[in-house]
Nucleic acid binder design. Structure first.
Lengths: 202, 202
DNA sequence: GCCAAGTTACACAGGTCTGTGTAACTAAAA
DNA sequence: TTTTAGTTACACAGACCTGTGTAACTTGGC
């Protein structure tokens, strides 16, 4: 949290470019030469800021691990809003699934640190759901949170292969049904919610 | 469908080995040298049977595209049994997610043919759910089938990163809730179903 | 002006990968 | 036996990869 509006450092530019290329094209598909060439710097400069490609990969994943912004909306709106945010992200042409799941799929069980951060991310999202469900006083917040997270990850995987934002709406419909089934009063079955979830769901 | 009990051909052995290694380690991570060395044949022989690695990748994915076996169980048992089968597969140490999703994640939107077969596979599984839901006479079989498929893919993605077969049980619980919510009578909320689903779910 | 930090160009080592070319070998069919 | 199809060993081309070494250059602060 340095001062805001600070000039973007070289390291930032490298990380930002690596992030975009790793995410869009795949980690193994992108070489350090490609990244440095894209920025217009020498490969040497890149290695002056990151000791290895592995370190850059780790920084990439840490960079993707962002927390949802706090919201003053009701828990139900926050939960359902997650799926509206997903639908918007699915519509963007630069969406290509969850970077953590993709990294695990690509780098395999070999790389333990990649798996660790992926697990941490998924669990943090599950806990986010759980906290909202606790607020709602549902009987089994842990279990229901897991189920909601399944819908999130399922719609991401489906959209990855189908390029179909409607997967997010299907997930939202299912989430609504599960919430109602748990005794939560859900107001509008239509899609009129405004300004939902917000934070990156990966 | 040649005569059964036929001797395994060289091509079969290559494909089988490529399947195992591609799936477990990743497509980009495995070179043709690794595959031929694993079988104990020369690289030349491999290229005598497959014109390129891309052709071998395509054969791998086609090989993974298997249809569920017909079943005489009730539609509800078949649907819920899918998740029992998933749980069993999650428990196996050689399970590493859905080969189609993984291939799309790894090879990116670049390779159009990979995406095509992945879409075809996912849609075939959705239709399998839909057909059972039509038998059950639910109001919106298309939509509910999509939702069930989201649970399948979500639990697969979650298990890929967490190595936790309980994800399949969570998906089953959610599926049961969605079915009941659609007016389907579901008998045993406990886990006593026997010999479910069976076919490979990717 | 001068220094120090950062950057650049460039070559290179050592490894991997896909795919080909070739000549010798093996084994089964004719 | 002879033919033929498949296989093998092996070298190699050409490309790409990660990472390093080095000497020259630019630039902001003093």
């Amino acid at each position: 949290m340095a001062s805001p509006h600070q000039k973007q450092t070289m390291k930032d530019r490298i990380l930002q470019t690596a992030d975009r290329l790793f995410y869009l094209k795949g980690i193994r598909a992108i070489g350090v030469d490609t990244i440095s060439a894209e920025i217009g710097i020498s490969k040497r400069t890149l290695y002056n800021h990151f000791p290895s490609k592995d370190a850059l990969i780790a920084a990439y994943l840490e960079h993707r691990f962002v927390q949802p912004k706090p919201s003053d909306k009701s828990p139900v709106e926050q939960i359902l809003g997650t799926f509206d945010a997903l639908e918007r992200r699915f519509g963007a042409k630069d969406f290509r699934g969850c970077p953590f799941v993709n990294a695990v799929a690509e780098l395999g069980g070999e790389d333990k640190s990649v798996k660790e951060i992926a697990i941490a991310f998924k669990e943090s999202r599950r806990l986010w759901f759980r906290d909202r469900l606790v607020e709602l006083g549902v009987a089994d917040p842990e279990g229901l949170a897991t189920q909601l997270q399944l819908l999130v990850d399922g719609s991401i995987a489906q959209d990855l292969v189908r390029d179909d934002p409607a997967m997010a709406r299907a997930a939202k419909d299912a989430a609504r049904a599960l919430l109602e089934n748990a005794g939560v009063k859900v107001s509008s079955p239509d899609g009129a919610e405004r300004n939902p979830g917000s934070a990156r769901e990966g």
